[in-house]
Computed example of a mutant assay.
Amino acid sequence: MTHEILLLKIHNGLKDGKDYYEATRGNWKLDKRRPQYIQYVVGINRGKVVCAFQPTKWGIVEEGTEKNRKFFDGIEAPAEVLLRFQSSTEQIIKKFGTGSPVAYTSFEEINNT
């Protein structure tokens, strides 16, 4: 499997007062096999790419209403990577299904559209 880019709609987290990192890092319903392939996580607010992070570690919520959801610890992606995502916003937004806050893409898909 190729390295993936996880795309997340974060406007609800931001509305709750979280910063970009906290709104993006979790807790998300993801396939348990996917995190190992995710190279970047991109936060999208109201149709605009606003942040990007490189996960360094993934975790799973152990209990409560969000049990089994995934979250990551990570570092901010380099500015040139964020700019690359921002310049591909139109292609990135098309990856989301109706109502879904989670989508995936790759650099290959972004470059080929």
Rank of each mutant, 00 (worst) to 15 (best):
L83F: 08
F85S: 07
L14V: 10
E90L: 10
E63L: 05
F96Y: 09
E109A: 08
V81K: 04
Y37C: 01
I92C: 01
G59Q: 04
S106Y: 00
Y40D: 05
I75G: 09
E80K: 07
A103D: 01
I60P: 03
T65P: 08
S87T: 11
K18H: 15
V102Q: 00
L82H: 10
E108H: 08
T65S: 03
A103H: 06
P35Q: 07
I60F: 04
I92F: 00
G97M: 04
E22W: 13
I93A: 03
E63H: 06
I93Q: 00
P35I: 06
E108D: 15
Q54I: 15
I92M: 05
Y21A: 02
A77M: 09
C51Y: 11
G17K: 02
I92K: 01
I93N: 01
S106R: 00
Y104K: 03
F71V: 00
Q86E: 10
Y40V: 07
E22A: 15
L30K: 02
S100V: 07
I110T: 04
F107M: 08
G74F: 10
L14W: 06
Q86P: 04
K48H: 08
K15W: 13
E80S: 09
Q39I: 06
L83A: 15
F71N: 09
R33D: 15
P78T: 04
T24S: 12
G74T: 08
I93P: 03
S88T: 02
Q86R: 11
W58L: 11
N45K: 13
Q86W: 02
R84Q: 13
R33I: 10
F85E: 07
I60R: 14
K29P: 00
F71D: 05
W58C: 09
L14S: 03
N112Y: 12
A103W: 03
I75V: 15
D19V: 08
V49S: 10
N68G: 04
K67P: 01
E22R: 15
E90D: 13
F53M: 10
P55I: 14
T113C: 11
S88G: 07
R46E: 13
L83T: 12
A52N: 01
V41I: 11
I93K: 00
F53L: 10
L82A: 08
